[in-house]
Amino acid sequence: MHRTLLLLVVGVSLAFGVDWFLGEFIEEYVVRIINLCGIAIILAVSLNVINGLCGQFSLGHAGFMAIGAYVSAYFTTTLRVLNTETGETVVRAPLFDGAWGFVPALLIGGMAAAAAGLVVGVPTLRLKGDYLAIATLGFGEIVIIMLTNFESVGAARGLPGLPNYASSFWILTFAWICVVSSVFLQRSTFGRALVAIRENELAAEVMGIRVARLKVMAFIYGAFFAGLAGGLLGHLLRTISPSTFGFMKSIEVVVMLVLGGLGSLTGAIVGAIVLTVLPEALRDVEQQAKLPGIRMVVYALVLILLMIFRPQGIFGQRELSLKLLRRLLPGGRK
């Protein structure tokens, strides 16, 4: 318990220090990329619990993000709703007016996403592998179509004018919390039970693991952080619309995970950072080469080649540690 609190204090102070440092010395563009990396880390690490540890292949992460983003924005943002019958625009002041409301709104968003995780998790438990992937993909699409039709959250227009609350401090703090809690989870009996389910569901059940319950809990955990990340992303972009959370977004997160090595926490973090920074770095290459669109072609090619030559991802299921580094370096102990 003490260690948890200590870690939290360390993380929060670290985030605070980094936020100050970034604000003072680092160019805004770089800060923005760092912020996006932080959000990507939350997404990849939380999906790693569902896909990597528990082995449940989910393609619905963007749906949970959308729920988190919309619910938190609903509390922090001034809504302007056009009544399509009378032509009047109804203005509603934010429910949580002021910066204090940001974290509560984020948490409510996360909880709403977690509730959706429960709703999705319970019925889809019976499904395995590809079928589960498709069902979760369907769930994500349903969320998007619903949001596209809810006039009260702007329908296809989305919600503009989210307040500027997603500072590096909050993004890094939540990324830290997400990573630390995942480490604890991985080492707990719960985490080990999830791995058991991944390795052999039937055997796990025979060993007395309550498979159904744990699977749902993994879903809820992943969905909660996806919702948080959605809320953070919304407040960073300061506008949200259903199209931001399409199924390509889910795929992006899965690719981060697979790139780093499914089931490896550090792999997820590295994958998240690489796939956030790489497209930005390739932007200049594209500009120099005068081949608009080559960026995505390269991205796709890298993906295919990586899978062919290293299907287990960069780290496989191992974690990046000093020991591993030493072993990978030339002349190291094998």
Partner: peptide, 23 residues
């Protein structure tokens, strides 16, 4: 190799054909 790796490759091929098509 794992079915997931094959699935990701399939997604990669899809992205490649789409974006190659756009180019």
């Amino acid at each position: 190799s794992s079915r997931l790796a094959a699935l990701i490759t399939a997604i990669g091929v899809s992205l490649l054909l789409q974006n190659g098509g756009i180019m």
